[in-house]
Write a protein that binds this DNA or RNA. Structure first.
Lengths: 278, 278
DNA sequence: ATTGAAATACCAATTATTGGAACTTTTTTT
DNA sequence: AAAAAAAGTTCCAATAATTGGTATTTCAAT
């Protein structure tokens, strides 16, 4: 890798490394960079910013442009977003009443309990935050939707684990050792199994500083007709404000929210009816 | 292709034929279909709708899901939009507004009416401020672009609600109580429905101190050629300066601005001088 | 348990992507 | 106005991804 010494003091700008495991995802990552800009940009600058070779980037932009996703300022050779992309964004947000509904349930849960709440799903071998509403309190943990946490040390994760068959659970956990994130993280498989059993009995799970020091979390499953749900609601708060005891007091509110979410879920599947909503 | 006459009227919708000259564009076209849906969908149904073979579609969806662009309902095997895609859409709309024309339309509207104006879009269960130009008057409400307000107590929100089908509206509103922000907030669903009807008839919506005490707001939709729009223009002012009566007087100016904004979108779609044949 | 429908894995043929090097156009400098 | 520099563009063979028919698995409903 290290060739002859380069006299150049080297790349000053951040690498950024558009990482796409596949060409398409690479293009999406590119669009995300584009979407984050509030100014037009040139091929060159983008190439430097993303580390994509010029010819490659050129072809990508060309492709996006001829599809109407990007537009370019004929005069200067600068690119910006195209109508088609904007329309896509508009429609996406406009039609996603489903997500909107979930979000408002979450918001009213936060109003009720006064602490940050989130919606989670199992994605691969990790728990993913689907949505999150922050507490109004000034002391908060900053966790945003889209981020992921391990199953074995999160309340939601344990809830999901409890819903699995032992075989499924084993397959998921066998992959990697249980990493310790704090002194309280359960890193022993048997101990975890024991806790899972308890979660099953109780219908909720706790994470008492097992992932982040000072963070307590309670989660319950959003029930689904079918039994196998991939959705949890959880409350998260600094231990300073929320003790395990107090957390139990929030369970009724959590369950109410879970039921509301469940109802949304039930109504969300597409019916066979293809009548356009006139 | 055309077999014996089918007795069933059957496939009511067009084949749709996702046309991508290149795999990536095909994926975009797929996302556009997804973005136009307000419900979750199954692999099967989407395969029928788009004419993409099941294995191919399966891979595409899988790819999009593992990238966080789509999400799926574990219990039902159904797909919907993912956090990452929604985030992309939001950023896109947010950063796009400073670009030229839109902002200046807003500025000249402010010049005309003398009060702060803003551009808004629906995102989830909330209305997002895309852009804002402040009144020159010293007494102002501090609201900046990027901030969000609930749908049920904002003028723009009501306009968006009025554009939805009853089912969509219900999904968005029915599962959480309508929070009261001021004594004037409409917190009753039926009352809100009634007002929505009126908004539909009148073509504009008012927010008379329903979100912030002392703040009055009028909003109209920015019309769009193809389908529904996710863009509103609104005037906001302290009740001290703007009464509901006076607000009606601003409607012509508002509509003119809305039309101008609408034209901007339409025109940027125009030029077809490409050597492109297909 | 059995069944049928939907979802997923497999894989060889096909097709697209990649980026170094060379070339053209635009912009800046002399 | 010519030369130099910088940005944009084209070429193309090696590489890598996509495609979709077929086969297999999983799921839900008898």
């Amino acid at each position: 890798m290290i060739g002859p010494m380069k006299s150049v003091p080297a790349p000053v700008q951040a690498p950024l490394e558009i990482n796409g495991d596949t060409p398409t995802l690479r293009l999406f990552a590119l669009l995300e960079v584009v979407a984050s800009k509030d100014q037009f940009f040139s091929l060159q600058s983008l190439s430097e910013e993303t580390n994509i070779p010029k010819p490659t980037l050129h072809r990508m932009l060309q492709q996006l442009e001829s599809a109407g996703l990007l537009e370019r300022n004929g005069d200067n050779r600068q690119y910006g977003t195209g109508v088609r992309l904007r329309k896509l964004a508009e429609n996406l947000l406009l039609n996603d009443t489903f997500h909107g509904a979930r979000h408002s349930v979450l918001r009213s849960l936060v109003n009720e309990v006064g602490e940050s709440c989130n919606l989670t799903a199992l994605s691969g071998s990790e728990v993913m935050y689907l949505d999150r509403v922050e507490t109004p309190a000034p002391l908060r943990f900053y966790l945003h939707s889209g981020s992921r946490v391990p199953v074995h040390c999160s309340a939601s994760g344990k809830v999901f684990l409890a819903g699995m068959t032992p075989a499924q659970r084993q397959r998921l956990l066998a992959h990697a050792p249980l990493e310790a994130f704090t002194p309280k993280t359960v890193t022993n498989l048997d101990a975890l199994e024991e806790e899972i059993k308890q979660v099953k009995r109780q219908g909720f799970a706790l994470d008492n500083e097992e992932f982040l020091p000072g963070l307590l979390c309670v989660a319950v499953l959003v029930p689904s007709a079918n039994g196998r749900s991939n959705l949890c609601v959880a409350v998260q708060a600094p231990v300073m404000r929320l003790t395990p005891d107090k957390a139990l007091g929030l369970l009724p509110a959590l369950h109410r929210a879970a039921d509301a979410l469940s109802r949304i879920e039930r109504d969300s599947a597409a019916p066979l009816d293809d009548r356009e909503s006139a």
